[in-house]
Design a protein around this nucleic acid. Sequence first.
DNA 1: ATGGTCGGTGGCCGA
Length: 262
Amino acid sequence: MASVRLATWNVNSIRSRIDRVEAFLERHAIDVLAVQETKAREEQLPLMGLQSAGYDVAAVGYDQWNGVAIISRVGIEDVEVGFPDMPGFGDPEPKAEARAIGATCGGVRVWSLYVPNGRKVDDPHYVYKLDWLARLRAAASAWVGEPTALVGDWNIAPRDEDVYDIAAFAKDTHVTPPERAAFQAFLDDGWSDLARPFTPGPEVYTYWDYYRQRFERNRGMRIDFLLGSPALAERVLGAEIDREERAGKGASDHAPVIVDLG
DNA sequence: ATGGTCGGTGGCCGA
């Protein structure tokens, strides 16, 4: 099996970030990049110079609402859109189908995921987030025996050390026991966090809010993860959070996470 | 308990 350098990155609008995306792909020689929060419709995406640079792109999205994509220089096969919004939830229908896209790249089935944010613990979106995760888990259980990666913005900080001040987050989403249990359930099913062993905490994050100079003060959260099935876990050679990508003007509020599969 | 800063949009909402 050929080696694959796989990355995930919440870009917070791919159109405003396209120069950084292209530079990132080239700088790290990324084979497959899962992108979240593209905030673009599919027909807006070919504006990128990616195709001419030799990358294939599969995307789903609607205007400013979320949107996910897979960018690959090792080909894209069998694209599948999954896990839209819950029927009857109340969100405008166009927001559906913007949270997950799967494709086979370089022999690896990659799902680019944007887990619902949840907003507040007393918000219907919070219940929806837990429902969405449960449905993803049910579907994913059928793939755990294959070389599959579930990567993206999980909007969950699984451990206390994954937020800069756990006391400040005590009443917020991302750290509640039900959300953490939902994440742990994937691990119990045999998925494993491919990057954490190579990027141990504490104070190692993938997301920093734009305001209050959170990045400069390293007050962030670890919420972006690459979960791999056992067939991938045994191939991991290393991992890196590209913290430099979060620095400077024009950065996304998330840093990319990279995993090398041998 | 708020507000701070981005992004896309259309005269605010979501993160």
